[in-house]
Design a protein around this nucleic acid. Structure first.
Lengths: 358, 358
DNA sequence: AATGGCGATGGAAGCGCTTACAGTGGCGGC
DNA sequence: GCCGCCACTGTAAGCGCTTCCATCGCCATT
């Protein structure tokens, strides 16, 4: 054990006022930049505060002004780059607006309404991100009590909504596969209505329809690695892999697992089968063949959500949903010529480069 | 625009009390599980609260009990899996303890002491994670005011410290390379004292020393992708690559970029040059050759930090630093026989599998 | 020299909740 | 039939801060 001394409670505005020889009102004004305080007085207050290591109690301020100056974020229990980027975008924007961020993780299945309810009491507004555990009912209830936004989540009329573009981009991606001469194109991923992957599936169907083609195959699985391996096993087992010439996957994770498993079984990607992903994860660049995918401006989604929430708190009404553009990132797995994975050349599109590091 | 109706301010304890025909003290007791309240009364209060959609104001409670029931986390502006996992571990533990998590991002360079100071006013304790922007002075100041813990960060006597094991594991990793017959082993990464990578470098030196060998090369660069490419360029340019037979990299990011660039130039990994990383990122599994690396139980670090913080807040004194074991993950890039990237077979060690998904 | 106006300051009333402390009434024991 | 105890409940005093309103000099006007 290193030390027994736990920090003493910090000074209050009263002690600062006493030490500076002024009233607490003056101390308060000094810290609230607006109030008019004589330079000498201000100086004295600042000095006293410094000496006392004064830290204003946010709770007291919140109580007095009836604003916590904090935003809540609800995320699923997932530590992938997608949510991390969303969160970073959100936090950056919030902190620039002078707002704190209170994070709550809610697993997709467990409906811990309690957690969210508690969160509600400490923030001025809440953002629900994608597959966060909270169900639509919870979101609706929250939206009735506080400004609320949703990101990549089924829309609720009472909340502002943000999405990355899915359908149109999926159509273009699928058309690109068609341009490579592929005709028997399958889709992998759970196509629930209202979900991102559901919309991607729609776009895929749009493209096929436009070309007068039928969907070759649809495997409804969770967009996770394990499911990708299972899908690949199945395709190999029932020989379906030979009746396909392309596979549009709901996300990179699926695509990567499928490619890895198929490659191990001797299926050549893209020669025998083109495969595409979605999300442009880091692995997509380094995989062999490098993965054609879609980059979403996820941090923009986070940023927009925070700004919208701040506006709502300041009295703005709910707005129509906003969609952020996505960009195709064409690499080798769709049949395009391979490009070595260099940072500079890995960003052929105009979308901002993803931040991913340690 | 969809709706003009912004949520009305929620009911207070007074309104609930009035509606239930009791005093506010009774309402308070009803929600604080401890107080003794007659079943009928409790029922009436609960009903009234339900009907009024009562949400207790956390700020008022915090003010009254002089506890915010919230923990602060300071992270760098980085959206990689490492920090995400840390954060998830932390949040899970905190929420199980009934504590909220307030997140603050501070870039490594910018010393926004202001942000941290503000955070200080709204939480009962703070965790500083790894390369978070706050410098040692800031941490020290915070530690003087509130219970504080650090994770993978230079130790401060006033704060509890948590680390993943680095030195010993790096020694074992380097010895493994020696066992593969490698003798001219270089190190890539900034070896600052007190940093994780600095400790890994120490372990690398330990192994060489134990074998009576000299370090072949040390390139001090930031542990980021771009630096990895630059390092590879340089090794190729000055021919140093031919004087080495192994490279221990400070993290996966460096290793992956180096392998990719070297492979493009015809250098065979691991035949010509063995390369190892650190962190066991997802890409490590899918890279060709698959990357030998080290898995750290990052979410355990987060969990431990949260628990320690909670204990400190309850009056526990500062404890000695705690180190969490790391595990070698040997794949192909060190010279071991390759293993196909299947989820089940990709986890040869006993460490928990990393969560990474979307 | 009296009058306004105004910048600077203090007084004091909350904000919504917790928690001593002080009842209040019913009930068993004597 | 009175007393004391106990389970409940109410009263009220804060917690630390903001902010309206009043006060007080002091200087520029008239």
């Amino acid at each position: 054990m290193t030390s027994n001394i736990n920090p003493a409670p910090s000074a209050t505005i009263y002690e600062v006022a006493a030490r500076a020889g002024v009233s607490i009102a003056t101390v308060s004004r000094t810290f609230a930049d607006n109030g008019s305080v004589a330079p000498r007085t201000r100086e004295a207050v600042l000095t006293a505060a410094q000496e006392l290591r004064y830290v204003p109690a946010a709770a007291a301020r919140a109580l007095a002004v009836r604003r916590s100056k904090a935003l809540g974020v609800v995320l699923p229990h997932i530590a992938g780059p997608y949510y991390a980027e969303l969160l970073v975008g959100f936090e950056l924007a919030a902190s620039q607006l002078g707002l704190s961020v209170v994070l709550t993780l809610v697993a997709p299945n467990d409906r811990r309404a309690a957690t969210v309810h508690e969160l509600l009491g400490r923030v001025d507004g809440i953002a629900f991100m994608a597959r966060s555990g909270a169900d639509d009912d919870t979101v609706r209830r929250v939206a009735a009590a506080r400004p609320t936004v949703t990101v990549a989540r089924r829309r609720i009329p009472e909340a502002d909504a943000f999405f990355a573009e899915n359908r149109e981009t999926a159509r273009r991606l699928t058309e690109h596969l068609l341009a490579h001469g592929r005709r028997r194109i399958g889709f992998v991923g759970l196509a629930e209505g209202g979900s991102d992957i559901g919309r991607r599936h729609r776009g895929y169907l749009d493209a096929l329809e436009g070309a007068g083609l039928d969907p070759a195959l649809h495997l409804s699985v969770d967009p996770v690695e394990d499911a990708g391996f299972a899908v690949a096993e199945q395709l190999l087992a029932d020989g379906a892999v030979h009746e396909l010439d392309a596979l549009v996957c709901g996300n990179d994770e699926l695509a990567i697992a499928i490619i890895a498993r198929l490659a191990a079984a001797g299926v050549r990607v893209p020669e025998d089968l083109a495969v595409t992903g979605w999300d442009d994860t880091r692995t997509a660049r380094y995989l062999a063949p490098s993965l054609s995918t879609v980059r979403q401006d996820v941090s923009a989604l986070g940023r927009l959500a925070a700004h919208r929430l701040a506006a709502r708190i300041d009295g703005d009404p709910v707005q129509d949903p906003v969609t952020v553009d996505s960009a195709l990132v064409l690499r080798a797995s769709c049949g395009c010529p391979p490009v070595p994975p260099r940072p500079s050349s890995s960003v052929p599109s105009s979308a901002p480069s993803p931040k991913e590091s340690r």
